[in-house]
């Protein structure tokens, strides 16, 4: 049952899926990486020094983009009610959705990091740190995003609200994740990012599941 659910969620969220998501956040991510040099000037040294942080900010902003479609359409169509009748709890449905969301979002984002790093002239060593940090941090970003998407799914003006809610909650991931750039030899920041991601992934199914249940009540 969970396997079927995951396959359905992936079909929905992967690029070219029925949800129509996937590629847009990546283009947005690259567009933000392109904007930064326009704003601060093409000084290669400055770009190389600050580029890692810019990639992190772009990744965080790109993570907000797919939230609108993540839960709301299925909630309105009554998919979660049907699953509930079949005995699949909202928490399980959200666990599957979290996994599918991360799989649809993170690998492509890591791939897009390479051209973004080239645009900003970041060294290979730094690029590797950024990639590792994003690998550890994206599950947490996906978890915060899914929790917020489920909380705002039943509201009409949910999209703008979701951005405002994600940013303060994602601050620790950004700090620990981007912090790995300042201390490249210290794995502590990377481990903290991973720990934070794991914690958020553990909490999110309950928050998001509770939100789906609450949306049914009202």
């Amino acid at each position: 049952m969970i396997g079927t659910l995951l396959r359905r969620d992936l079909g929905l969220l992967l690029p070219g899926g029925r949800g129509g998501g996937g590629v847009l956040p990546l283009l947005f991510f690259l567009a933000v990486a392109m904007l930064y040099p326009f704003a601060v000037g093409p000084d290669a040294q400055l770009l190389a020094r600050t580029g890692g942080g810019v990639i992190w900010v772009a990744a965080l902003l790109a993570a907000i983009l797919p939230l609108e479609k993540l839960v709301a359409a299925d909630l309105e169509a009554g998919v979660f009610d049907q699953l509930h009748l079949r005995g699949v709890s909202e928490e399980w449905a959200m666990t599957s959705r979290l996994l599918a969301h991360w799989l649809a979002f993170a690998p492509l984002l890591l791939l897009a990091t390479l051209p973004a790093a080239a645009l900003l002239g970041i060294s290979e060593a730094t690029t590797r740190i950024v990639l590792l940090g994003l690998l550890a941090g994206t599950p947490g970003l996906a978890a915060v995003g899914l929790a917020v998407a489920a909380l705002t799914a039943s509201l009409r003006g949910g999209a703008a609200l979701a951005g405002l809610m994600v940013i303060p909650l994602a601050v620790p991931i950004l700090i620990f994740g981007a912090g790995t750039l300042a201390r490249p030899d210290d794995t502590g920041g990377l481990l903290l990012t991973a720990a934070l991601s794991l914690g958020l992934c553990a909490v999110t199914p309950f928050v998001a599941g509770g939100a789906i249940r609450a949306a049914r009540e009202a």
Partner: peptide, 27 residues
């Protein structure tokens, strides 16, 4: 700011007050 905006939206649209409560705990 996020909590107040969420609570106001939930109240305006008649959504369950459990939604802002969940955000309060997450925060």
């Amino acid at each position: 700011f996020a909590y107040i905006a969420l609570a106001q939206a939930a109240e305006r649209e008649g959504v369950s007050p459990r939604i802002p409560a969940l955000f309060g705990l997450l925060g």
